[in-house]
Computed example of a mutant assay.
Amino acid sequence: MPEGHSIHRLARQFSSVFGGERLTVSSPQGRFAAGAARLDGHVLEAAEAHGKQLFLHFDHDLYLRIHLGLYGAFDFGGDETFIGSSSIGAPRRLGEQEVAGDDGAGYSGPPEPKGAVRVRLVSKHGWADLRGPTACEVVTEAERQKVLARLGPDPLADGADGAAGRAAEFTRRLRSKGSPVGLLLMNQEVLAGVGNVYRAEVLFRRRMSPWRLGRSVGEAEAGELWDDVVRLMNDGVRQGRIITTEPQDRDDTGEPVPVSEAHYVYKRTGLPCRRCGTPVAGTEMGARKLYWCPSCQAD
């Protein structure tokens, strides 16, 4: 499932290639026909992300709310002016895919839909196809606010003047819970946007046991967790991938960072910890794979 940095990159992509454009909206698959009819012919004013939620803001205060989930993904294509920050999708697509729209004969519009395209958005210069989302619905501003009210703070939210408030809110929500911190970091009502990779990596970097209870985490420790999540996720937005290792902890210090050197514990079960040599452990927590170092992250 794409984590929050991917959804923020996707919002930038939409703002870049569709912002201010009047769009033709359809549902080739048919499952979103009524919603597409409500948005067809409207102008996309902005694209916003909060955690794993994407909101495409159309005029008349209508929003297309999308949660990609495990299988959702976008394809983009268009003419030579249709250049954005690249599309984001589920890991099965390796994160990013743009489809060439000019074979030398000039752009003549989007291709015939392939597969189960839930939503197609088309402007004068390009198109985007959405397949397989967990959630896809048209909502009003009031309905959007209800969704946001259920979510925890987003480490990637804009506005430096609100950063301290977001950190304090995360600390309050984390320390009010009696559940393991390994579950809480992936609870979108505690922290919006963190998924399995960031969960495992941040806990390792802070030398914190995944089974430590939220209410036992001190305020300073919670603040350090928050700061590291903010740093790593902002790096993810810039780089388009999750890299959590520091240069001194990599065997290969070249650029770009190889996939095998990008993480400390994620998907490294049985391999030696990069810092202490103890074999990385793996189990399940909350129906998701969990990775940690039994020595560096001892209770």
Rank of each mutant, 00 (worst) to 15 (best):
P133K: 09
P153S: 08
P155Q: 07
A135G: 03
V138P: 05
R131E: 07
V147W: 05
K146L: 14
K146H: 12
P155N: 12
G152S: 08
D154Q: 10
G126R: 00
A135H: 13
E137M: 03
A128E: 01
C136A: 14
R144D: 11
A128P: 08
K124H: 12
A160N: 03
A135T: 15
P133I: 03
G132I: 06
L156T: 02
D158L: 10
V139S: 08
G152R: 01
S123L: 07
L148A: 09
L151W: 11
P153V: 06
E137R: 12
G126N: 05
G126D: 08
Q145R: 14
V139Q: 07
V122I: 14
L130T: 04
E143T: 11
E143Q: 15
A149E: 15
R131Y: 06
A160Q: 13
V139D: 10
R144S: 08
P155G: 11
A157Y: 00
D154L: 00
A135K: 13
D129M: 05
H125L: 02
D129K: 07
R144E: 11
S123V: 12
C136M: 02
L156D: 02
V138F: 11
D161H: 11
T134M: 15
E137K: 08
L156S: 02
D154H: 08
S123M: 12
V138Y: 02
